[in-house]
Amino acid sequence: MRTLVKVAAGAALLLALAGCGGSTAGFSALTEKDATAVELPAHIEVEHVAPGSVRLLAERDDHSFYVANALPGGVCLIYANRQHDSSWLAGCTLAEPRQFSPTEPSPLEISGSGINAKLAVDGYDASKDLADGWEQLHPNLLVRGL
Rank of each mutant, 00 (worst) to 15 (best):
T3S: 07
T3G: 03
T3L: 15
T3H: 06
T3N: 06
L4A: 15
L4E: 08
L4D: 13
V5R: 10
V5H: 07
V5M: 09
V5N: 05
V5E: 12
V5F: 07
V5W: 04
K6R: 09
K6D: 11
V7F: 02
V7I: 12
V7N: 01
A8Q: 12
A8I: 15
A9I: 12
A9D: 00
A9R: 10
G10N: 07
G10Y: 05
G10K: 02
G10H: 06
A11G: 12
A11H: 03
A11P: 00
A11L: 14
A11K: 11
A12E: 07
L13Y: 01
L13G: 04
L13E: 05
L13F: 02
L13D: 02
L14K: 05
L14Q: 13
L14A: 15
L15P: 06
L15A: 14
L15D: 07
L15H: 07
L15I: 11
A16E: 03
A16P: 04
A16C: 11
A16S: 10
L17W: 00
L17C: 12
A18H: 09
A18W: 06
A18E: 08
A18M: 09
G19V: 05
G19Q: 08
G19W: 05
G19P: 00
C20L: 13
C20W: 08
G21E: 12
G21L: 12
G21Q: 14
G21F: 14
G22V: 07
G22M: 08
G22Y: 03
S23M: 14
S23T: 15
T24Q: 04
T24M: 01
T24A: 07
A25T: 06
A25M: 07
A25G: 13
A25E: 11
G26H: 00
G26Q: 00
G26C: 00
G26N: 04
G26V: 00
G26D: 00
F27R: 00
F27E: 01
F27V: 06
S28M: 15
S28T: 13
S28A: 13
A29P: 12
A29K: 09
A29Q: 03
A29I: 09
A29D: 11
L30G: 01
L30W: 02
L30H: 02
L30T: 07
T31W: 03
T31F: 02
T31K: 04
T31D: 12
T31H: 01
E32K: 04
E32H: 10
E32F: 00
E32T: 04
E32R: 09
K33D: 15
K33S: 13
K33P: 02
D34K: 02
D34T: 03
D34N: 13
D34F: 07
A35E: 09
A35V: 03
A35K: 01
A35I: 04
A35G: 06
T36D: 09
T36M: 10
T36K: 07
T36Y: 00
T36S: 13
T36N: 01
T36W: 01
A37E: 11
A37F: 10
A37R: 03
V38W: 00
V38L: 14
V38S: 00
V38Q: 04
E39S: 15
E39R: 14
L40D: 08
L40G: 08
P41L: 09
P41E: 12
P41Y: 11
